[in-house]
Design a protein around this nucleic acid. Structure first.
Length: 945
RNA sequence: GCCAAUGUGGUGGAAUUGGUAGACACGACGGACUCAAAAUCCGUUGCUAGCAAUAGUGUGAGGGUUCGAGUCCCUCCAUUGGUACCA
């Protein structure tokens, strides 16, 4: 019979499910292997063709490991809390719980369609109270601990309280932001609120003032991502910074361990570099500057204490606490105006602006503690509140941005490093000789850094310090659809943890998901839930990464009601051996997971320091984003060919379904497409669409016929996402070609790490391959072909070459070349009319991880009773691969000139003699003399002439 | 701006450790089968010149190291991801 994927696939899907073929037990006899794909956020758009790329790779790897004798854990679940569900609720009035349930069901069906070997009995959902009970439990554990930087471990906060009662905080070795020293007497005299505030300065999960992007018009907090050019992406409303009490994780306490333990994991150098740079360790000095006529000091961190004599002014972050205190009467108006400006700027805008720096003078002066000079104190947006101390000593001679700033505002620039011996050095490079710098004059920069710190310590104005770019992770969201904090407050505002017996603290039902008018979280609307027993509940919710920071542990023991996972399960499964997911999570998710995991390790709750041993980043399958140019001045749409200066235009995204010749250079909207666009974006119902062909207004075309009208759209490669309306559903591909073909095609597209735009151009080739593969075993006319005849040496060599290559390729995650090796093998065996079972049977087991359905069908037809997915994966036998001779390229100076057949058993010298004495080589050489011969065994021969 | 990745035929890509550039596939072209089409099968296909053998050239651009560079180093350009409340 012929290859019929649709019939065979539904049959085996049922068989696998009925027979629990993919059931995983905590089986201690076999070696374990844990393969994990980053779980998806179930968005309303459904799973798109980009998601399965990494899932298929993980699935193939997991199947290969199981067939190779491992007990493989390969689970899947849903990261189900998040912003999109909430926005959908605001727009459409559907409760997030409802839309999330719908979406997860849809995802499940789509995943099942692709034939993954998940044990669904182990699935998790972060928005399920049975799951988030443990997210809340972990939060409380973190809340109830502090970090002892001397012992380098997390310890119960109760121990710190005991210490305070006995000894105050003078000898505490706890990481934190507590600045004032207090005694045991002070401690016992403090009110409950004061004690709570002090403990917050030490807890690993704590509250502090943070800034959010508040959009008054939309009545909500916005992510940086939702802001474009300083206004909200939706509607273009103004956005301002607003201070609010925010929960944070004290990730900075773990900075050194997060950095150092990267050495232990098998991640790509690129990914480690990203994490390393994110943590951003730098060594330097902490310095204090006196302010003229004020008691306060300005604390700065600098990596260049050697340049202290060049510090001719200071810059504070606009949000710095001292700004309002030190600004003079004369400068107040200017400062306020400037603050208004920075308040409207996103952090990203503030950092990326390098050429055009801005600032304002506070009117106050500080004293340079070394040179003794009086220097002006400015504020400037390029200094960030959360980085370092939120203040810098500006050295315009040796820092690019300081230099631009000083030039713009006419501030003094004193050169302190002579770089004339280093013509290629940039401003700020740590090379050169100190000048104009008192006791540092004549020193090399590196020596001057050390000497300056020594001096500063002596003078008592500063000390050596290590600074991290890493900030404590903001853990609060003024949103509805997230885990509630298991925290309550009394009337004094003192925080209390809920008792474990009160967990899970379930999210209350509300119908309005917007924050209340004062900007407080939507949970404030659930007044009964908020006020209980004289206490007020915390109404912020946890961020998206709360649930995803530990889900990999829950899969080990997903239904445990006594613990997040049993010790037995944790001891068996240990950690994730292979983690596959996108680079977009390179810092966020991976860093938070590592933080939580390390905390649990400190508590002895997990057996390993790091959660993910090996990590592979799959590339993104991108979509093409199609948009229309909108003239900002007259509000009319312009076809691409009419646009000369892009700056005058905004890009309005359109659904790709309306676009003719989508994703080509000729992508455009026809008059019909424009009509679809107008009903898709009713706010543009009355808009005018100009193109070189004609004008379309109110749905009527002028200047040409309706058929001729053509409005060219802008095509850009980018994320495949609902927000860009360019999602391609894998189901459509599976219906047409089958899951096996879809799986192999996604693998065949290219290297797993590489991003590429989705297109189906080559899928026919993979489909043809599967038909040919099937045709080796079963022919439409001749029927079943497999015989017991002995395979020829040539046939066995082909099969075993392929087995070797596929094993190698899976092991190094090169799935595309694995598929191509199988194609080569099938083409060759077909040419030889191979029917021998010896040569063909191993190939069924070989293809099983890639094409599980067709493999299962053929496996059973070959007379096997159990599933091919538990059959031994083939291993090549060396005896079939030996070759007597090989074609060698003969190169002159590295350029290939001819081929020579050389016996494999010749020594290097024999090869040289053989080549030199060859008549064709002599003829090619003519008069030229061979100076040297290089033989690369198995590769090539190079004659240097 | 900063951090990271990527750039090879008309297209997706291969070349695993510095050793035959373009495997495998798509597309295109030519042919077989057919009344015809689809499907299938066979052949050609980096570019330039040539009837051809062949020669030259060729891995984003420019330089360098090497017997030999897609691969290593330097500078630059373009694209993509991240940039702390999208997940």
């Amino acid at each position: 019979m012929s290859y019929k994927p649709s019939e065979q696939e539904s049959k085996w899907k049922k068989y696998w499910s009925d027979n629990k073929v993919y059931k995983v037990t905590n089986d201690i006899d076999k070696p374990k292997y844990y393969v994990l794909s980053m779980f998806p956020y179930p968005s309303g758009a459904g799973l798109h063709v980009g998601h399965p790329l990494g899932y298929i790779a993980a699935d193939i790897f997991a199947r290969w490991k199981r067939q190779s004798g491992f007990n493989v854990l390969h689970p899947m679940g849903y990261d189900a809390f998040g912003l999109p569900a909430e926005q959908y609720a605001i727009q459409k009035g559907v409760h997030p719980a409802e839309s999330t349930a719908e979406n997860t069901a849809k995802y499940r069906a789509q995943l099942d369609n692709i034939g993954f070997n998940y044990d669904w009995d182990r699935s998790v959902n972060t928005s399920d109270p049975a799951y988030y009970k443990w997210t809340q439990w972990i939060f409380l554990e973190i809340y109830n601990h502090y970090y002892d930087y001397k012992a380098k471990t997390s310890k119960p906060i109760s121990e710190l309280i005991t210490l305070f009662a006995e000894d105050g905080n003078i000898n505490a070795t706890a990481s934190g932001s507590q600045e004032d020293i207090f005694t045991a007497e002070d401690w016992s005299a403090f009110s409950a609120k004061q004690k709570d505030d002090i403990l917050m300065n030490y807890r690993l999960a704590y509250r502090k003032t943070g800034y959010v992007n508040w959009c008054e018009a939309l009545g909500t907090v916005l992510a940086n991502d939702e802001i474009q050019n300083g206004v909200s992406e939706r509607g273009g409303h103004p956005v301002e910074k607003r201070a609010m009490m925010q929960w944070s994780f004290r990730t900075t306490a773990f900075a050194e361990r997060l950095l150092k333990d990267l050495e232990e994991v098998e991640w790509s150098d690129a990914l480690k570099a990203m994490q390393t740079n994110w943590i951003g360790k730098s060594q330097g000095a902490q310095l204090f500057f006196d302010i003229v006529d004020h008691d306060e000091k300005i604390e700065v961190f600098t990596t260049r204490p050697d340049t202290i004599y060049g510090a001719t002014y200071m810059v504070l972050a606009p949000e710095h606490d001292l700004v309002s205190k030190i600004a003079t009467k004369e400068q107040k108006a200017e400062i306020e105006e400037y603050l208004e400006y920075t308040n409207s700027r996103s952090e990203r805008e503030r950092i990326s602006e390098v050429k055009e720096v801005t600032g304002a003078f506070t009117g106050a002066y500080a004293m340079n503690p070394i040179s003794g000079e009086k220097i002006p104190v400015w504020i400037g947006e390029y200094v960030l509140k959360d980085y370092g101390t939120g203040a810098i000593m500006a050295v315009p001679s040796d820092d690019e941005r300081d230099h631009n700033f000083a030039n713009k505002y006419g501030l003094t620039i004193t050169p302190v490093v002579d770089q004339s011996n280093y013509p290629n050095a940039d401003r700020g490079d740590k090379v050169g000789t100190m000048i104009n710098s008192g006791f540092l004059d004549g020193m090399k920069v590196k020596d001057a850094i050390k000497a300056a710190i020594t001096k500063m310590v002596e003078m008592g104005i500063g000390q050596r310090k290590i600074n991290y770019k890493l900030r404590d992770a903001n853990f609060s969201r003024q949103r509805y659809w997230g885990e509630p904090f298991p925290i309550k407050y009394d009337n004094e505002g003192v925080s209390y943890a809920l008792d474990q017996s009160e967990l899970p603290l379930e999210l209350p039902m509300v119908t309005d998901f917007k924050p209340t008018t004062d900007g407080n979280s939507p949970l404030n609307r659930a007044t009964e839930w908020v006020n209980r027993d004289g206490y007020t509940m915390e109404t912020n919710t946890m961020p998206g990464y709360a649930g995803s920071s530990w889900y990999f542990l829950r899969y080990m023991d997903p239904n445990n009601t006594e613990a997040f996972a049993s010790k037995k399960a944790l001891d068996y499964w240990q950690d994730v051996d292979l983690y596959i997911g996108g680079t977009e999570h390179a810092v966020g998710h991976l860093l938070y997971s590592r933080f939580v995991h390390k905390f649990l390790f400190d508590k002895g709750l997990v057996p390993t320091k790091e959660p993910f041993k090996k990590l592979v980043n799959q590339g993104m399958i991108q979509g093409v984003i199609e948009s229309l140019y909108l003239n900002k001045e007259n509000g009319e749409f312009y076809s691409e060919e009419l646009v000369e200066n892009e700056d005058n235009f905004a890009k309005i995204n359109t659904h790709v379904d309306f676009v003719t010749n989508y994703s080509t250079t000729d992508s455009h909207l026809s008059s019909e497409g424009i009509k679809q666009f107008m009903s898709f974006r009713p706010d543009f119902m009355k808009a005018t669409f100009r193109s070189s062909k004609g004008i379309m207004k109110n749905g009527v075309v002028e200047g040409c016929s309706e058929e001729d009208f053509k409005f060219v759209t802008v095509s850009e490669v980018g994320k495949m996402s609902k927000r860009y309306h360019n999602v391609v559903n894998p189901d459509d591909v599976v219906v047409r070609y089958g899951a096996d073909c879809f799986r192999m095609y996604e693998m065949f597209l290219g290297p797993i790490e590489q991003s590429k735009p989705w297109d189906t151009k080559g899928i026919d080739g993979v489909y043809k391959f599967l038909k040919k593969f099937w045709g080796l075993y079963d022919d439409e006319i001749q029927g079943w072909l497999i015989t017991d005849t002995e395979a020829t040496a040539e046939q066995m060599k082909i099969t075993h070459t392929c087995i070797k290559k596929v094993n190698d390729d899976i092991a190094r995650f090169s799935f595309n070349t694995g598929v191509s090796a199988m194609m080569i093998c099938v083409n060759k065996l077909r040419k030889l009319n191979t029917t021998s079972k010896d040569a063909l049977e191993p190939l069924v087991r070989l293809i099983a991880p890639f094409a599980p359905f067709v493999a299962e069908e053929l496996w059973h037809r070959l007379g096997n009773e159990s599933s091919v997915h538990h059959a031994q994966f083939p291993i090549h036998e060396e005896k079939y691969l030996v070759e007597a001779s090989k074609e060698y390229p003969i190169c002159f100076n590295g350029k290939k000139k001819m081929m020579l057949n050389i016996a494999s058993d010749l020594s290097q010298d024999e090869v040289i003699d053989f080549v030199k004495s060859n008549e064709d080589v002599k003829a090619l050489l003519g008069e030229t003399v061979i100076r040297k011969v290089i033989v690369v065994p198995g590769r090539m021969v190079n004659l240097v002439v």
